[in-house]
């Protein structure tokens, strides 16, 4: 069964059509990449899937793990296993990473009818996951994303993903603002989560990230539609030729 099935999805922002009929199916175990020029609707697609307010769905449907995704609240989608790694992770002053993530995990566990983790169990979990991402204790105690460098923020997103263990992870321009070393660490973190139960949707402008997170399928999103799909070699082709053939010109 498909993990997520997006059918003919149309969405507008302030009356302006951004998504104009997106069709996309991801099966468990697959990693899909969406590439496309600026303004193609890449981030809009991720926000619409996560349920952010301010986007109007005018047509289409999304089925996630057998459920009607579009009728669910933001936090219900999270509990159902949808995770969005933000392009610009948000700062929450005064709330430590540990507290934030513990509250989040336990809220999700509660919704799923699982017992919450106590402080010690959680600390053990987060420390193990942080270690995988070369994050020290000091970093997990700091306030969520406050004073974090670009690389640290993205690592923090990967940490949250590792703790929350989603079924579908959407990575929105995870490579933006990362130097090559940070990119490798984050990519390793993401790759560690790849598995037969989990799907991933990697949204990126550049092919570079896909050297490290190698996708099974690459899609090109232009003008609010998926205009071309192919294997991982499609990413390289795009890198070489740009998006001109899709009616878009821009400096790379």
């Amino acid at each position: 069964m498909s993990l997520i099935e997006i059918k003919n999805l149309h969405a507008t922002v302030d009356g302006k059509a951004i998504l104009k009929g997106v069709d996309l199916t991801i099966n468990a175990g697959e990693v899909h990449a969406i590439m496309g020029p600026n303004g193609a609707g890449k981030s809009t697609l991720s926000y619409v899937l996560a349920g952010r307010e301010g986007y109007e769905i005018t047509e289409g449907s999304v089925t996630f793990d057998g459920q009607d995704l579009l009728s669910m609240e933001i936090e219900e989608r999270a509990a159902a296993g949808l995770f969005l790694a933000f392009q610009y992770p948000v700062e929450i002053p005064g709330v430590s990473n540990t507290t934030f993530l513990k509250e989040a995990l336990n809220a999700i566990r509660k919704t799923r009818g699982e017992t919450p983790l106590d402080a010690m169990q959680f600390l053990k979990l987060i420390r193990a996951k942080a270690k995988d991402l070369s994050m020290n204790d000091e970093m997990i105690k700091r306030a969520v994303n406050v004073g974090f460098s670009g690389g640290e923020k993205k690592r923090n997103e990967a940490l949250q993903m590792a703790v929350l263990q989603p079924k579908l992870a959407i990575l929105d321009e995870t490579d933006s603002g990362l130097d090559i070393d940070a990119l490798k660490i984050v990519a390793e973190g993401v790759n560690r989560l790849r598995g037969p139960e989990r799907g991933m949707l990697v949204i990126t402008h550049y092919q570079r990230l896909l050297d490290y997170i190698v996708p099974d399928v690459v899609h090109v999103l232009a003008n609010g539609r998926i205009v071309k799909s192919g294997g991982k070699e499609l990413a390289l082709e795009l890198e070489a030729k740009g998006y001109a053939e899709f009616g878009v010109t821009e400096a790379a």
Partner: peptide, 14 residues
């Protein structure tokens, strides 16, 4: 901010 609320809710918080 709306961003903060969206971020928290995306992580599962009511």
């Amino acid at each position: 901010s709306e961003d903060q609320l969206f971020y928290c809710r995306q992580r599962g918080l009511k």
